[in-house]
């Protein structure tokens, strides 16, 4: 913030203004600082983006006469070559993301106590969880691509590959509804992109907490804002999990 506003006014240094208003005027209507207000409404906005994706998913899925069974599609597990563990791997992923979210909540709480060391430790574990989740997702994508799933091709289906079932020839080349692959990669990809962004932001938070600039401000609101974003990523995963793996 290079711009500095020059004003003449009585300003008591010892009486810090409330976080709601630079000059302690009318209090915030919602009793929450503008930074967190912005983050919350941004997340609301982002929730609309994700909802649009998931609602499109629901619409396309319900318009198809047949849809792959998640217990059949998502059954592989790393290091267990021919294992049949339906939903096993994704359960691990979900659990890791929840724990990562918890770690960041703990960091926020330590921030309220001005416990710098606690913030740093818990942020670290939050980042570890996020990176682990991304690794899992990379493995799962890789695995599904090996099984033949593409944004434009879906090997999981009742038809034989290359046969036509619709009224036009050369159509429906893939055994299952092609939308499945597109929606899976599109939506989990968009979520993964959010996780990646969240990890980057959390690293920024970790550095800020470790080097002390947040501590000097006298509050760890930045960690709170980053935390809100990180929990939102977890929240979205709940519904991605619901849409792709459970239903």
């Amino acid at each position: 913030m290079a711009e500095v506003i020059e004003i003449k006014e009585e300003h008591h240094v010892d009486q810090l203004p409330t976080p709601n208003n630079g000059e302690g005027g009318e209090n915030s209507a919602l009793n929450i600082s503008y930074g967190k207000t912005m983050m919350w409404y941004f997340l609301l906005s982002d929730a609309f983006t994700f909802s649009a994706f998931l609602i499109s998913y629901a619409t396309i899925r319900i318009s198809q006469p047949w849809w792959p069974d998640p217990n059949v599609v998502f059954k592989s597990f790393p290091f267990m070559a021919h294992a049949n563990v339906p939903l096993g791997f994704v359960s691990v992923m979900t659990f890791v993301l929840i724990l990562s979210s918890v770690a960041v909540v703990r960091a926020v709480q330590e921030g309220h106590r001005m416990n710098q060391k606690g913030v740093v430790t818990w942020m670290f574990w939050g980042i570890v969880g996020g990176v682990f989740f991304l690794g899992c997702q990379a493995w799962e994508w890789n695995n599904l691509i090996h099984e033949g799933l593409r944004p434009f091709y879906n090997p999981f289906g009742p038809n034989e590959a290359g046969k036509t079932t619709l009224f036009l020839e050369k159509m429906a080349m893939s055994p299952g509804p092609v939308a499945f692959g597109a929606l899976f990669f599109g939506i989990t990809g968009f979520h993964g992109f959010h996780v990646f962004t969240g990890v980057c932001l959390n690293v920024y938070g970790l550095i800020g907490a470790a080097n002390g600039p947040f501590h000097k401000r006298g509050h760890y609101e930045m960690i709170e804002k980053l935390g809100l974003y990180w929990h939102f990523v977890d929240l979205v995963w709940v519904f991605v999990f619901l849409a792709f793996y459970l239903m």
């Binding site: 506003i5 006014e9 630079g22 503008y34």
Partner: peptide, 11 residues
């Protein structure tokens, strides 16, 4: 005194 634009930190 100079105060920063409201977005910067009060400190």
């Amino acid at each position: 005194t100079v105060i920063d634009s409201p977005a910067t930190e009060h400190a």
